[in-house]
Design a protein around this nucleic acid. Sequence first.
DNA 1: CGCATACTTGAGCGAAATCAAGGCCTGTGG
DNA 2: CCACAGGCCTTGATTTCGCTCAAGTATGCG
Lengths: 269, 269
Amino acid sequence: MQTAATIERCDSRVGIEGREAGLSLPPARQGAAQAPPSKCAGCGTRQIAICAAVPAQELARFSAAATTVRIEPGHRFMDEGEAADNFFIVTNGTAKLLKMLPDGRQQITSFVGDGDFLGLAFLTQYSYSAEAITAMRLCRFSRPRMRQLFADFPLMEKRLLASACHELVLAQEQMLLLGRKSACERLASFLVDWARKAEPATAPGGLHRQILAQLPMSRADIGDYLGMRIETVSRTLRLLKTAGVIATAPGWDIMVQDLAGLEAMSGNA
Amino acid sequence: MQTAATIERCDSRVGIEGREAGLSLPPARQGAAQAPPSKCAGCGTRQIAICAAVPAQELARFSAAATTVRIEPGHRFMDEGEAADNFFIVTNGTAKLLKMLPDGRQQITSFVGDGDFLGLAFLTQYSYSAEAITAMRLCRFSRPRMRQLFADFPLMEKRLLASACHELVLAQEQMLLLGRKSACERLASFLVDWARKAEPATAPGGLHRQILAQLPMSRADIGDYLGMRIETVSRTLRLLKTAGVIATAPGWDIMVQDLAGLEAMSGNA
DNA sequence: CGCATACTTGAGCGAAATCAAGGCCTGTGG
DNA sequence: CCACAGGCCTTGATTTCGCTCAAGTATGCG
């Protein structure tokens, strides 16, 4: 069985023990980039940072509180307005979190992947829906069990706080994007973010190295995330291709040819 | 000196002890609406919920950790990218939190008022700037003192988590607004939110009672919050006036004539 | 092969941005 | 007291970016 310290290293996205000893959080991309998730003794198939809040000798107890759930692509497993009975940790796959208006318009607020938390609403109802994009595996905790775990392992709450703060930073970034960026800047920002996450998977190279960004989501999802219509996503993608900063690979993948150029088009300096 | 229980009642916006005993948070508007802040024995002039995390007999120690700061209107007291050395609690006044793009475009991510926390970034740098709109009074805690307080009063972390979750819900709502709503829906949503906050200050009446929404911010600020230009704010305001749902009072105040009508125009059902 | 689904591309339109005056307060100084 | 300046807001004219509508292409699947 791994020690808590070993587990910690595996995914620092939500680690609270940053370099300032207790009150800092390393950037998500860095953390996710440097150490790919590995097996988790605590709660399922993949290593997630929340496990590090649990002493190694207690992992069995922690594990017993969770239920592993499999979700098919396209299936909705949390619904805005429904009773928030469960708390989830993604162990495998990608989901979209979305909010809808009564007339059907929808906004994807984020894409979540391995190691991310869901259902951390301190309300009795979920404030958004979650839908699987790829096949998924989740750790599910009932609310009472979650409460018990919080009581047993106070460090977990620290981690959740760090996670929530990090999500808040991302949300603010997204508000800037939605409120003030052009279609081109939005798509470029999105691709830069996604490429950064995928970066370590690609062979490291020079400044203008190619990065394969594997996008699990459809054009419609990208549009709903960036606040644009699907046609605009398509057209803007062509624009970026024409500019030579990206190339479309077969399927839904994108090859970033010039990350620096793409960043220049993202509006962030 | 007040007991912790008494203090708790004063502002439940960030209270973690909701009706589900530990994992729920009442809606902000309800909480803020039902009990206006009063004097706080712990950290300054106004009652704030974080004080409730501190046992009554420890309030003096808590108080000693804070410094009261006054800020003039228009003055910036947190800067995006600067070292996140301080943590603030607003005791009086209104500020805007904003993010900027290199070319000067800016997005206000939220307006904060009495009892709100600032600087809760688990990064070493602030991820946004904060600028006073009205004259303000703040409780300031240095990072080391904050850490000490967290260690001394673990309940504080629970409250911060609840607060962060609540902000996350608001941020998601705002993403929906910025990504998918029309100019008219945006402004209507904003006014509904603001009127709801001001509601208790106005005499309660029927379904179509008038509510005076005192807006401390300029048209430019509203535009930067809603992702629209100042001219569009002005034009859309006229549209709402023509529709008869609002009337402009002298100064920057708005009289909501028909809250139900305004809500119908906000896109939220 | 035919059909369904997702994506691309084109043409035209429209909501909001931009550009440009003009009005209305408030404060200041003659 | 009035004249003037400087914010801030409003209103009008024009432009433009992204949306809508519509058709066409690729891909996958029974």
